[in-house]
Amino acid sequence: MTVPMSAPEDVSAVARLFADGLVDPAHVVALIAQTEGDGHARGYAATCLQLLFAERLGLTRAQVFDRIPMLMIGGTAGLMSPHITLFVNVPGMAVPGGPKRLAIGVTSTRALLPEEYGTPVHVALVAEAVRAAMAQAGIASPDDVACVEMKCPQMTAARAQDAASRGAATVHPSAAAASSMSRGASALGCAVALGEVPAEAITQAAIAGRPDLYTQRGSASSGNEQMAVRVVVIGNVAGAPGTHVAARGVMAHQLDLAGARAAFTAAGLRLEDGVVAAEDRPRLAAAFVNAGADSVGDWQGRRHTMLSDMLAGFSGHVAKAVAHAAIAGIAQETLVLGNAGAEHQGAPGSNLVCVIARGA
């Protein structure tokens, strides 16, 4: 269920879901949010959500943090609209022989040491967590996984100093580069778990060094609030209760609208003139796109300036805006989550798409 935010601290739409009895906070297993502003605004938004859940569930903020992974994606650009998507697991009876319906699995790795960020150890831990989340959701085949959303640790100066105090070295002296490798290792862990990359291909040199190794279903973001990798597996299971369906698509390049539309039609949404039919739009529960435009310097041989113009420092935001516009145009809805992560997340220059829709 997706609701808008009017400001980083605005959790009123979530509170209304609770007050109106549409969602029981005890059934929320994870959430992912698109927040405006910098890391401080992202952290403020997470704090406000944690306080709301703590009040409703009678828990401390720390207990909420441990219980409900909050994957906060900071930064909006273009027509991106801040919003929150709740993953709600309502107890229900399975329907033997029933059609495949949405299933969610949520796990975390153990806390990683800073010197483990972006290493084969990191990859192995994430692979184990993804498999555990699949098992929790009842997803037996990787083919039934539509999307894996991950929030992994970000390298900071304090964490690098902590490693150094124990005589350990981080994977890169630059915190930004080490954080990029943390995202890459998370993506590769997903790829190994889903059989997209063989485990024996994972070496330290491969992480951030082999763009030919990637997942087509994993999206990783880093944050300094995380010590472990939080994992949300989204897929479908035969006979699962409910009517929702998750589907995926791959945009081979930024203007591959056919690849994007495939995710909408696979989720059971009808298209008219290339966009979701008006009567089907209320059935769209959530849409995610992982943007890769800033991982290459061109589109089909046509040069772009994301990496060289005055906004090069914000190339991730520009890439998100491009990918978001494509998906929002098809959905005719701006509550679409965009994440910029090229590190082993799709072939270079591609976009990964996930659509969740309610049954007719």
Rank of each mutant, 00 (worst) to 15 (best):
F65T: 07
L49F: 15
P99I: 09
T215I: 14
A206H: 00
G209V: 01
D38H: 10
M72L: 08
S308W: 15
G329D: 06
S182T: 06
N290P: 01
H344C: 14
V64G: 05
G75V: 12
A287G: 10
S179V: 10
H317E: 04
C354T: 13
G292P: 00
A185T: 00
P82R: 00
D280W: 01
R110P: 10
I207R: 09
L112G: 06
E55A: 11
R270C: 08
A164W: 12
A132I: 14
A286F: 03
A133P: 08
Q136K: 11
S221F: 11
G98K: 11
A46N: 09
P25T: 06
L213I: 13
Y214E: 15
R210V: 04
A328P: 09
Q50E: 13
G297W: 02
Y214T: 14
L284P: 14
A260K: 00
S350E: 01
R183F: 15
L257E: 04
L102Y: 00
A103N: 05
V245N: 02
T170Q: 04
V29Y: 08
A33R: 08
Q161L: 13
A176M: 02
S295M: 07
A129D: 12
Q254P: 11
T76K: 06
L49C: 05
Q161N: 10
L271P: 11
V276E: 05
G338P: 02
S186F: 08
A238V: 04
L113M: 06
L352S: 07
A133N: 13
D38Q: 14
L71M: 08
V276Y: 04
A286T: 06
A19F: 10
A342R: 13
A191S: 05
D212M: 09
E36K: 07
L57F: 13
V106K: 03
E9D: 05
L49V: 10
F314M: 12
D10R: 06
V29P: 04
D20S: 04
R358P: 15
H304T: 03
L311D: 11
I68D: 13
R230C: 02
A291N: 00
A46S: 14
G43F: 02
Q216K: 15
L307Y: 03
C147M: 05
R283V: 00
A164Y: 03
A178R: 00
G242H: 01
A360N: 12
G218K: 01
A15Q: 05
N89V: 15
P198C: 08
M150P: 05
N351K: 09
E149Q: 15
P198K: 06
Q50F: 15
H304A: 01
L52F: 03
A103I: 03
A169P: 09
H122Y: 11
E272Q: 01
E36Y: 15
P69V: 03
R261Y: 00
V197K: 06
R131F: 15
Q34A: 13
I234E: 11
A19T: 10
H324Q: 05
L337Q: 12
E36G: 11
T109Y: 09
G43Q: 07
V296D: 04
V322R: 01
M155L: 14
P82V: 02
V126N: 06
H40D: 07
A342G: 14
G138D: 00
L257C: 09
I207T: 04
M227W: 06
L71G: 10
F314H: 13
S141D: 07
A62Q: 14
G292Q: 02
P114N: 03
G301M: 02
S350F: 10
V355P: 14
Q254K: 02
